[in-house]
Deep mutational scan, measured.
Amino acid sequence: SADYSSLTVVQLKDLLTKRNLSVGGLKNELVQRLIKDDEESKGE
């Protein structure tokens, strides 16, 4: 998976916004949300 932890919070929020995901929470939560979304989209 992508190394989201190396991105800035601003970059993470931009990715979340593009996916229509919540941008609330700490950086670690944003990273986990993106990883979870990646895993769910692979399952389709």
Results as ranks from 00 to 15, higher is better:
R19I: 04
V31R: 05
D14V: 08
L30I: 04
S5N: 15
S22D: 12
R19Y: 00
T17F: 07
I35T: 07
L21Y: 00
L34Y: 00
D38L: 06
V31G: 01
D37F: 12
Q11G: 05
V31L: 08
D38M: 06
T17I: 13
D14R: 08
R33Q: 03
D37P: 02
E44L: 14
T8S: 11
E40K: 14
G24W: 05
L21A: 03
V31Y: 01
N20E: 07
R19C: 04
S41K: 15
G24V: 15
D14T: 07
S22Y: 06
K36T: 10
S6M: 08
E29R: 03
K27R: 10
K27Q: 07
R19F: 00
S22E: 12
R33I: 04
L21T: 02
Q32T: 09
V23A: 10
E39I: 12
D3H: 08
Q11W: 00
L21H: 03
R33S: 03
N28H: 15
G24L: 11
D3C: 13
L7W: 04
V9F: 04
L26E: 15
D14C: 13
D14P: 00
D37I: 03
K42M: 12
V23L: 09
K18M: 08
V9T: 09
L34P: 01
S41Y: 10
G43V: 12
D38V: 05
S5E: 15
I35H: 07
N28I: 12
D3G: 07
L12P: 00
K27H: 09
I35L: 12
L34G: 01
K18G: 08
Y4N: 02
R33L: 04
E44P: 13
T17V: 11
D14Y: 07
L30D: 01
V9A: 05
K18R: 08
D38W: 05
N28V: 10
G43T: 13
V10K: 14
L12I: 06
E39M: 14
L15M: 09
K13V: 11
R19L: 03
L21N: 02
A2E: 13
I35K: 09
V31K: 04
K13F: 01
E44T: 13
N20S: 08
E40M: 13
V31C: 06
N20H: 11
S5M: 12
E44M: 13
Q11P: 00
E44R: 14
L16Y: 00
D37K: 04
K36I: 09
E29M: 05
A2H: 14
L16R: 00
V23I: 12
L26A: 14
N28M: 11
L15R: 04
L16P: 01
L34R: 00
K36C: 08
L15W: 04
I35Q: 09
D37T: 04
T8D: 10
Q32A: 14
L34V: 02
V10P: 14
V23Y: 05
Q32Y: 03
G43S: 12
V31M: 08
Y4T: 02
L30T: 01
D37E: 05
Q32L: 08
E44Q: 14
E39D: 09
T17G: 10
S6K: 14
E39H: 11
S5H: 15
K27A: 06
S1F: 13
K18Y: 04
R33W: 00
V31S: 03
K13S: 05
G24A: 15
E39P: 03
K36H: 10
S6W: 07
L30S: 00
L30G: 00
V23K: 08
L12H: 00
S1W: 11
L15P: 01
N28D: 15
V10N: 14
E44N: 13
S5G: 14
E39Q: 13
S41F: 10
D37R: 04
L26H: 13
T8K: 04
D37W: 13
I35M: 10
E40C: 15
R19S: 02
R33F: 02
E44K: 15
L26F: 08
L21S: 01
S6A: 10
Y4C: 03
T17M: 13
K42D: 09
I35E: 08
L21I: 05
G25F: 01
D3N: 07
R19G: 03
Q11I: 06
L12Y: 00
K42P: 08
L7A: 05
L26N: 15
K36Q: 13
L7D: 03
K13W: 03
V23W: 05
K36W: 10
L7K: 05
L12F: 00
S6E: 13
E29N: 05
K42C: 12
N28K: 10
D3E: 08
S5D: 15
L21M: 06
T8G: 07
N20T: 04
E29I: 06
G25I: 01
K42I: 11
R33M: 04
L26T: 15
D14E: 13
S5I: 09
T17P: 01
S5T: 12
T8L: 05
K13G: 04
K42F: 10
R19H: 03
V31W: 00
E44A: 13
A2W: 12
L21F: 00
Y4E: 02
E44D: 12
T17S: 14
V31E: 06
G25N: 02
K36P: 01
A2R: 12
T8R: 03
Y4I: 03
N20D: 07
Y4A: 02
G43H: 14
R33V: 03
G25T: 02
D3Y: 11
E39T: 09
L30H: 01
K36D: 14
V9H: 06
R19K: 05
K18H: 08
Q11M: 08
L26V: 11
K36F: 08
V9W: 02
K13T: 08
E44H: 14
T8Y: 00
E29V: 07
G24N: 15
E40V: 11
T8I: 02
S1P: 14
I35P: 01
E44V: 13
S1R: 13
V23P: 09
N28Q: 13
E44I: 14
V9D: 09
E39S: 09
D14L: 07
K13I: 14
A2P: 15
L12G: 00
D38T: 04
N20P: 00
E39C: 10
D38A: 05
V31D: 01
L26I: 10
E29Q: 08
L26P: 12
L12R: 00
K42Y: 10
L7G: 02
G43C: 14
